[in-house]
Design a protein around this nucleic acid. Structure first.
Length: 314
DNA sequence: AATAGCCCCAACCGCGCTTCT
DNA sequence: GAGAAGCGCGGTTGGGGCTAT
């Protein structure tokens, strides 16, 4: 698809918006509302592309925006939601009224990542940094023992299909100051029979769907979340496919032209490891899940797993 | 006072998806 | 059904402000 056709036209201004441009856009939206963004520049007399107008309105001019620094409460909420949703900024923003996805993304990249590292937490996986280091050491050991490169490492099932998500613990941590969200999520979980603190992944998705009511920038066009459409695309379908299509397979034993495959090498290595210690499968060096699945939209961090979820820092 | 380096954040870009024709 | 147009999202960039030297 590439660049939008509107951006190819001549006389399109770029860069920072002047107060005059802001005024023109603001007055136009207030008077006529948000319709077709591509026609907004023409109708409002701006020499900008529709996309630029949309962004300016969403991130700066919208009257319901909350400006200023993030509160501790918001900070905690962002961290806990990021542990569940990953870099789905629009979904995270939908839980923080008056904040845009861009604002949250910037805050995360410039501030929260740093804070988490200072607390010894890996911001991408939400796991302790020393645990990450141990995994890397183990991966290096495996590579040196088998001759495999890091790119060739076989994957292993990292979590169950529709794993149990300890959403309760995570939410409890922010419940004190977010009573409304907390209560709403509980009311949603209960009809699903999820009262014990753990819910399956599909229920967690349902919750994020239900509460993606969207005052975030992503939904600003009509500011109503189309339940089940976007989330199904972004999370649900991927998760369902992932769960059902046997994407995670046990290492297979294949020997081609007498050359031992990496799967076989891994299998041999694993057997050796099993012989040497009683460690279970989980001791195999983990490959970053986000890396494995980088080509998909499904990058819920492993930290969201019940067994691995670290809530100490909340 | 000058300037180099760093940080923050507004804005842009590219891509995927949906809707329209 | 195919192609075009439009929308939304996440990643990246670059300019301005701040700080250290």
């Amino acid at each position: 698809m590439g660049r939008h056709s509107c951006c190819l036209k001549q006389k399109i201004r770029k860069g920072l918006w002047s107060p005059e441009e802001d005024e023109k856009l603001y007055n136009h939206i207030i008077r006529y509302g948000v319709g077709c963004w591509s026609s907004v520049p023409k109708l409002s007399g701006l020499q900008r592309c529709g996309k630029s107008c949309r962004l300016r309105w969403i991130n700066y001019l919208r009257p319901d925006l909350k400006r200023g620094s993030f509160s501790q409460n918001e900070e905690d909420l962002i961290i806990s939601l990021h542990a569940i949703l990953g870099n789905r900024w629009s979904q995270i923003a939908s839980q923080l009224p008056g904040r845009t996805d861009n604002e949250i993304k910037n805050f995360w990249n410039s501030c929260l990542k740093k804070k988490l590292r200072q607390r010894g937490i890996d911001p991408s996986s939400h796991k302790p940094l020393n645990e990450i280091k141990a995994e890397e050491d183990e991966t290096r050991m495996y590579c040196s023992n088998t001759g495999a490169t890091s790119e060739e490492l076989p994957t292993k099932p990292v979590f169950d299909t529709f794993p149990l998500v300890e959403i309760q613990t995570c939410l409890d941590s922010v419940a004190e100051d977010n009573v409304n969200i907390y209560n709403q999520i509980h009311q949603t979980l209960e009809p699903l029979g999820q009262k014990e603190g753990l819910c399956d992944y599909s229920s967690a998705l349902y919750v994020t769907e239900k509460f993606g009511y969207g005052e975030s920038s992503s939904n600003s066009c009509n500011w109503n979340c189309s339940i089940g459409s976007e989330m199904n695309n972004v999370l649900g379908i991927e998760a369902l496919n992932w769960a059902s299509a046997e994407k995670v397979e046990a290492p297979t034993h294949v020997q081609i032209n007498g050359v031992e495959s990496h799967e076989q090498r891994y299998s041999s290595w694993q057997e050796k490891q099993d012989m040497e210690s009683s460690e279970d499968y989980s001791t195999y060096p983990l490959i970053s899940l986000s890396h494995d699945l980088s080509g998909t939209c499904f990058n819920v961090p492993r930290g969201a797993l019940a067994s691995e979820f670290n809530v100490d820092f909340f």
